[in-house]
Nucleic acid binder design. Structure first.
Lengths: 249, 249
DNA sequence: GAGTGGTCTAGACCACTAA
DNA sequence: TAGTGGTCTAGACCACTCC
C-alpha cells in the first residue's frame, strides 16, 4: 500500500536547493509530523519518481539520505518502510554549548584563566608538537542556568588565532574556531570517570571525591593537524551524555 | 596531480561483490597501507571512471563511501583528497565484548543471575511494557584477562527467546539476539558516572564509593519494539570509552 | 510470477575554485 | 579560462521476497 499519495510533495525546480534534498526534507517533515506513520510502506521508487517528475536516481538519493539518518529502512523485494519514531534526535555528539542551548537551558561560561604556556608532555604528544612548544591554555567553568556544570581545560596549538576572554564567554569555542577559518573534521574522544580533586570539587560545588564524568578530546582538521586538545570534567550528579546509535550489521 | 595511476586497481566483473564496493575497498586498503598518502589528490572522477571502464556514478558511489567514513574529502573545484590518517578505527560504539576482543584482551563473562521477574516500573517504561509484565532479568560480571571490569544488568522483553547461562558465558548478548532473529536497528544510550554501592564495590574489587562509569542503553528494532534495556557499571579505573566522531558542518 | 530495491550505464548542464 | 565535483536524466538488468 503506497502511502505517499496522501502526502503533499511539491518541488520547486527554480530553487537552488537540490531536488533530492527538497524531497528528503519533505519526507522527513512528513514523518516527523506523523503524516507518514511508522511502519508505512513508501511504495515503489519508480512510481514515486514518475509522479514527481523526477528520475529514479534522484528519488533514491533522497531516500538514502533518510535511511542514513535511521528514519527509513529499505528491504529488497519488500519496499521502503518508515521506522518507528521511538528513536529520533541528532545522532551527533556536538558541542556541550549547543547541547545545552538545544535542551532549553541557559548556558554561560566563566573564563578562569587564559595564557600562553609551554605544552606539558602529554599535551605536546596529543597536538603533535615538540615538547615544551608554546600553546594556549584555557580554563573555563561552564554553567547552566547559573549552576556549575563542568570544568573545561583546553589547549590550542598556535593558529595565529587568539580568542579574547570576552568572546569565549559569549560563544562556544568551536564556533569561534570556525569563524577563524579553523574547521575541525574529526575528533577522537575518550570518556571516563574519576573522583574529583579538592580544587575541582570546590569549583564545581561538589563534595571532595565526588564522581566526575570526564571527556578528553583531540580534534583534527582534514590535513591531520590537531586543532584542539582538552578535557571536560563534568559533575556526574548534574550531567550525562545522551547518544543515539545506528546499529548497522 | 593524479595519484591513483600508481595504485593497482583491478575489478572483477564476475564477482558478486558490487563494483563500487570493490573499488571502495581497494581505495581504502591503498590508503590504509600508505600507497595513497595523506593529502594526495585522487584526481578527476571522470578520468578514473574511464580508466577503470566504469561509469562516473559508480565511481562516485565508491568515493562517497569513503567520504562517509572520513577517509576522503571532496572539494568542489579542487578535487578529492586523502585525509590525514591521524584518525582511524571503527566509528561505531559496538558491543563491549567485541571491543575487548578487538583490543586483544581475553573477555569472559560470569552469569550471576538469570531469572524471569516482573518488570520494575522504570524498566517497564523503557521497554514499553505494562507495569509488572514479566521480563528476563540478567546479571553478569564482565571480566578481561580474568580481572573484573563491569557489572551488566540487562532486561529482555519476552521474545520467546531464552538464552542459557552457558551460551551467555561464551558469546556476547547481541550476537545471541541476532541468531535468534532479533535484530537491533538503533539504540539510545546515556553515559554517566556515580559512586559504587557497597555491593558493586565488592563484586568489582573496588573500594566502596569508587567512581563508576555507567552506560544505560535501550535498543530498538525497526518496528520500534524495545529489544533490550540495561545498565553497565564499569570500573572507571580500568575502563574508558573511545569514540571517533566525524564533525560535519 | 509479480513486485521490490540493488546495481550500473552514458551521457548532460551547472556551480565553484584556482590560476 | 580550465578543471573539479554537484546534480540530474532515462533508461537497463539483476537478486531478492512474497504469494
Amino acid at each position: 500500500m503506497d502511502v505517499t499519495w496522501s502526502v503533499d510533495l511539491s518541488l520547486d525546480r527554480g530553487s537552488p536547493v537540490p531536488l533530492y534534498f527538497q524531497l528528503s526534507q519533505q519526507l522527513e517533515s512528513a514523518i516527523e509530523h506523523g503524516r507518514l506513520r511508522p511502519g508505512a510502506l513508501l511504495g515503489n521508487e519508480i512510481r514515486l519518481a514518475g509522479r514527481l517528475g523526477l528520475s529514479r536516481p534522484t528519488v533514491r538519493q533522497a531516500i538514502q539520505n533518510l535511511v542514513d539518518k535511521g528514519l527509513l529502512v529499505r528491504r529488497r523485494g519488500v519496499g521502503t518502510q518508515v521506522v518507528h519514531p521511538r528513536v529520533r534526535r541528532p545522532s551527533q555528539l556536538s558541542s556541550l554549548w549547543d547541547d545545552l542551548e538545544a535542551a532549553g537551558r541557559r548556558p554561560s561560561t566563566l573564563v578562569r584563566s587564559l595564557a600562553a604556556v609551554p605544552a606539558p608532555p602529554e599535551v605536546a604528544t596529543a597536538l603533535g608538537l615538540a615538547d615544551g612548544a608554546e600553546v594556549l591554555r584555557l580554563e573555563r567553568l561552564r554553567l547552566a542556568d547559573g549552576e556549575p556544570l563542568a570544568l573545561l581545560l583546553t589547549y590550542l596549538p598556535p593558529h595565529g588565532f587568539r580568542p579574547s576572554a570576552d568572546e569565549l564567554e559569549t560563544t562556544g569555542l568551536y564556533r569561534l574556531l570556525r569563524t577563524a577559518g579553523v574547521t575541525p573534521h574529526s575528533a577522537r574522544q575518550t570518556i571516563g570517570a574519576r573522583a574529583a580533586t579538592p580544587e575541582e570539587a570546590t569549583a564545581l560545588t561538589e563534595p571532595p571525591g565526588a564522581p566526575l564524568l570526564t571527556l578528553t578530546r583531540t580534534a583534527y582538521d582534514t590535513a591531520g593537524r590537531a586543532v584542539e586538545h582538552g578535557t571536560h570534567a563534568c559533575r556526574a550528579s548534574r550531567y550525562s551524555l545522551d547518544l543515539q546509535l545506528l546499529l548497522r550489521p
